[in-house]
Simulated scan of single mutants.
Amino acid sequence: MLRPDLLLQPTPKGLYCPPGDFYLDPVRGAVDRAVISHGHSDHARGGHGKVLAHPDTLAIMACRYGANFAKSTQALEYGETVEINGVTVWLAPAGHILGSAQVVVEHKGLRMTFTGDYKRRFDPTCATFEPVENTHVFISEATFALPVFRHPDTGHEIDRLLQSVTDFPERAHCIGAYSLGKAQRVIRHLRLAGYDDPIFIHGSLEKLCAHYQSVGIDLGTLILATSDDTSKAAREAFRGKIIIAPPGAFEGKWAQRFPDPILGFASGWMSIKQRAKQRGVELPLVISDHADWDELTDTVREVNPEELWVTYGREDALVRWAELEGRRARPLRMVAYDDEAG
């Protein structure tokens, strides 16, 4: 069997496959051939030569970077295989956001599974994570790889938001949520919980929400909260309403149109009270698109690889846990990825 370090190698640009001559999620400079796990900008950049990804990821990249974000693209459905210079590549659902995928790379009897970012809990906006059997090397993210991170039930957090809307009908609820994946997930969970009122969104969410709607994910009535009307009547219309925008949008002039706002933030980092306090968050919602500590460790046990590679986050803690379980593990120490959205 081929040695793992001959099939995938950590480099400053990302994981590189020498026999296949392609990169996984390269983010430092353009490359000739890239396989992209999902559409977040810390994993998917424009300007590459050839890009292989799930159809939804390609559509999301087109929304964000324009139709010509790569010289050529190839869509790969979950479970479909392709050969790249003799290396077999296929995708399995990662459960992170719409189109997110684990990238499975096989060559000379060796199977390596790169998770990208993933989570295990229910998400009504994307395919559920599927463990890849017979994985020799499992390459796991580690965004929340500390025992302190144990995320509550998503429904519980949505109920907290709805209760606040009921308790404070005179105030606008301004919820910060990452523009791709998190915002659409929060909206869909609100709909499933029975919230049928129009939801106001920042203009930066419009294209992405439209794509989610186009593939059958019902987000209900969405209204752009981008009017230049600063009259008292326009301001009063937001009372008792939910407004969703990228977190940074609520820190500037745009947010001043909302009356007596309750600022919320949907992120796994909201379990750290000091972070919420520093950002002036009155309603911290612990809703994460990443696996928490229990999900990470349970997944490693379920996949049961011969070797664990760890990247993107708290690498040392997950490696140490694996070693205490008698598992072979190593940190990759690759480029820093943006885990702020959580």
Score class of each variant (00 low, 15 high):
L332P: 00
L76T: 06
K277D: 14
S41I: 12
A291E: 02
A225N: 04
L224Y: 08
G268L: 02
G252V: 08
R120S: 01
Q184R: 09
D218E: 15
R64E: 13
I187T: 10
E206P: 02
A225D: 04
G176I: 11
R185G: 15
R257N: 09
L205H: 09
H189V: 06
A329W: 03
V87K: 03
L192K: 11
V104I: 14
P259H: 01
D260L: 03
K182L: 15
G194T: 09
A172M: 10
T143D: 05
H290M: 05
A245P: 04
G46N: 07
V87A: 04
T135E: 10
S37V: 00
I217F: 05
T73F: 15
K277H: 11
E130S: 14
S271P: 04
S140K: 02
D42C: 02
T73H: 12
S204M: 13
L161Y: 14
Q163K: 11
G109C: 13
F200Y: 15
I287V: 06
H48M: 12
E236Q: 15
K182P: 12
N134R: 14
P246D: 10
P169C: 07
F149Y: 15
H202Y: 09
R120Q: 01
Y78P: 01
L285P: 03
G86E: 08
G181D: 12
F22Y: 10
H136L: 08
H40E: 11
H156E: 15
V27Y: 06
M1L: 15
H96N: 08
H173A: 04
E80G: 02
T113W: 09
Y195P: 03
V35F: 07
K182H: 15
C17P: 05
A322G: 07
G176T: 01
A92D: 05
R301G: 02
L283S: 00
I242P: 03
S227F: 00
L180W: 13
T297V: 03
T230R: 14
V31Q: 13
A225T: 03
I272M: 07
Y178K: 07
F200H: 08
P10D: 12
W321K: 00
A276D: 06
A210R: 13
T166Q: 14
E315Q: 05
F250S: 04
P10Y: 14
H40K: 03
P131Q: 08
L332T: 02
L296F: 06
K207L: 14
G342Q: 11
G203T: 01
L161R: 10
K273F: 08
F144A: 04
V104S: 08
G79I: 04
E130N: 10
T88H: 13
D228T: 01
R235D: 11
P261V: 00
D196G: 11
E325I: 00
E106H: 09
I84M: 09
V103M: 10
F129D: 08
L15P: 09
G47C: 08
E323C: 01
A341W: 12
V89D: 08
L296H: 05
A145F: 12
N304G: 03
A75Y: 13
A276Y: 11
D123H: 12
R328S: 11
P247E: 04
L76A: 08
D25R: 04
A92T: 00
V303R: 03
G240Y: 04
W309A: 00
I175Y: 11
R235C: 14
E133S: 14
K119T: 08
H156L: 14
Y118K: 05
N304I: 05
V104K: 07
V31F: 15
I36S: 02
G240P: 03
